[in-house]
Write a protein that binds this DNA or RNA. Structure first.
Lengths: 114, 114
DNA sequence: ATGATGAATCGACGGTGGTCAATACGTGGA
DNA sequence: TCCACGTATTGACCACCGTCGATTCATCAT
């Protein structure tokens, strides 16, 4: 099967009705928000995200060195971020190019009371 | 030893120099941000935080029922959130009262590009 | 003092996540 | 067609986390 790294939900949708500080979250809202935050709550993934954002587009092979991680590990982290809708990838030839999804980050900020 | 639930850093400080989407994060910045996000990346803690925020002040004993968790589990989660600087607690008599630290949430939003 | 109540800690269990070596998959060039 | 290269997946290992029962600690009332 090839479910790959498709984000489970649209990246433009709100993560919860209002925000965490405005009203008690339902279990479903909390679960959804927690999943996205979990993707961010890792130092390697945060640095990966910042590297992608810094160049607007970057190849997977150019992430191994700055992150000091093996190729499988980088692939794992890009997949996690992609499934969370924080980055999107496009395969061109043999290379995988990544870019950030600013709307997703904005949705997280909004859920956090932005 | 009694280090208890004291936040490891001031709750008013920025979590990283600029934001994740502006420049590559250093390992230290990424680690610091990841620690705070990790405190948030749990559905029970997100709901706990929203419950505290909804009432401006709430007793630990009034969290067990809505969260449907045991007293030790609630105590564990409040400690994690407090160490992350997201909530602050004050013991009055036999009861522990919690309130949110809005500045901390704002710092996270800023680190996420707010 | 003694007992009652609320909270924190301890110990243990099961589940999950980060990591890498090895391998499989896809694409493009010779 | 065959090989080289970049990527994705598998399997395994180790560490960490969420949870709860049992216990301990702290505070107040009697």
């Amino acid at each position: 099967m090839a479910e790959a790294a498709a984000p489970e939900a649209g990246t433009g949708e709100a993560l919860c009705c209002t925000s965490v500080i405005e009203a008690p979250l339902s279990q479903a809202e909390a679960a959804k928000l927690a999943r996205v935050l979990d993707a961010l709550a890792d130092p390697v993934r945060l640095r990966l995200l910042s590297l992608v954002a810094a160049q607007k587009e970057i190849c997977s092979c150019d992430l191994e060195a700055p992150l000091a991680k093996s190729q499988p590990t980088v692939s794992h982290h890009t997949k996690v971020l992609a499934e969370a809708g924080l980055i999107v990838g496009e395969k061109r030839g043999r290379w995988m190019w990544w870019r950030v999804e600013p709307k997703r980050l904005a949705a997280i900020r909004a859920a956090l009371g932005g």
